[in-house]
């Protein structure tokens, strides 16, 4: 901003131009600062402190050191971490490459009525978890004539008690998650695909590259930032998954803890048993895990540096 303008502004503004320009940004951003202190720093500090205390119910907390963290290792928290990790791994394995391939197909000149299919694929993103959970709970019912058992019956596979075993519960949860996010990820990839210059493909075709080579050497590098983004939100989403499991079992606890996730553990300890100390220790463990992933991700993508250009 030129000096001339500053002087002009100062001269004509009743509220004192130069002074206001210095103060205004702090007023604009004040809501976030206040919000950050009350609804972020305070709760995180509180969780950290509580995780070091023995606190059941609203009784005053008693300092207990790392006792809660030791309890976690012996509790079904370990199983919850395993479930969340495997669930995250498999959802990433599907939800990163599959939507990219579908987006490339939808974007290709061979696709018929692309807009209709795009809209249909997007509908799950509009549906609440509760509504979708109703479908998955009863489509994967253990009844032999229920939807999914009838379907696998076609292939000669005997009916399963889907939500009664650990492995089949994982399958249901992964299918649920893929169903919900596939369309959104396709939309992300589709908008990234528009940024790749079309003549790159033409040049490669002239050079004799086949469709698969063009995909690997032009498309994948071209949408790399989006791939990283989709991977990141899939990891966050995976580790903080709770609502899906809750709607399938209608409870934060599941028989034999087959559907336990890290967050459902926090919920069950905190709200069902009022064991705030143990729940907080689980929360801090999850936070530590997420922060490690964040740091790795920030190192790779550097969002601040890039957008400051």
């Amino acid at each position: 901003m030129s000096k001339q303008n500053n002087i002009n502004a100062a001269g004509t503004q009743k509220s004192g131009g130069i002074h206001m320009i210095k103060v205004a940004p702090y007023i604009f951003t004040a809501p976030f600062v206040i919000y950050f202190l009350i609804f972020f720093i305070y709760p995180i500090t509180e969780t950290f402190w509580t995780s070091l205390c023995q606190q059941v119910g609203f009784a005053p907390p008693k300092f207990a050191g790392l006792a809660n963290y030791k309890l976690l290792i012996d509790d079904y928290f370990v199983m919850a971490v395993q479930n969340s990790t495997l669930y995250t791994f498999f959802t990433c394995l599907i939800l990163v490459p599959l939507p990219l391939m579908l987006a490339v197909i939808i974007d290709s000149k061979f696709m018929f009525k692309a807009d209709i299919f795009k809209s249909a694929l997007f509908i799950p993103a509009l549906t609440s978890v509760v509504m979708a959970g109703l479908f998955f709970k009863y489509a994967f019912s253990s009844n032999p004539s229920a939807l999914m058992n009838a379907f696998i019956g076609f292939f000669g596979i005997p009916p399963q008690g889907w939500l009664e075993n650990r492995v089949t519960t994982w399958i249901v949860l992964v299918v649920f998650c893929v169903w919900k996010w596939l369309g959104v990820n396709i939309v992300y990839y589709l908008s990234a695909l528009q940024t790749i210059p079309k003549d790159l493909y033409e040049a490669a075709t002239i050079d004799g590259a086949n469709a698969w080579e063009r995909f690997l050497n032009i498309t994948v590098p071209g949408v790399k930032p989006t791939i990283i983004y989709v991977l990141t939100i899939s990891i966050y989403g995976g580790f903080s998954m709770f609502a899906e499991a809750f709607t399938l079992f209608n409870s934060a606890r599941t028989p034999g803890d087959i559907g336990a996730t890290i967050v459902s553990y926090i919920y069950a300890q905190g709200f069902n048993r009022n064991n705030f100390g143990l729940a907080s220790a689980a929360g801090i463990t999850l936070l530590a895990g997420v922060m490690i992933i964040n740091i790795i991700q920030l190192k790779i993508t550097d969002p601040v540096g890039k957008s400051d250009d």
Binding site: T29, F32, V33, F36, I38, F39, F40, Y42, P43, I44, E46, T47, T50, Y236, F239, S240, F242, V263, I266, Y267, G270, F271, F276, A279, S280, G283, I284, L286, L287, V290, M291, N294, P303, V304, D308
Partner: peptide, 25 residues
């Protein structure tokens, strides 16, 4: 820049971690 980093931090921390202290608050 510090403020913007904090915005990113809030975006990255899953809100599920905070439900318990937020409930107490």
């Amino acid at each position: 820049n510090v403020l913007f980093m904090l915005v990113l931090l809030v975006m990255m921390v899953p809100v599920e971690i905070l439900i318990l202290p937020l409930y107490k608050e």
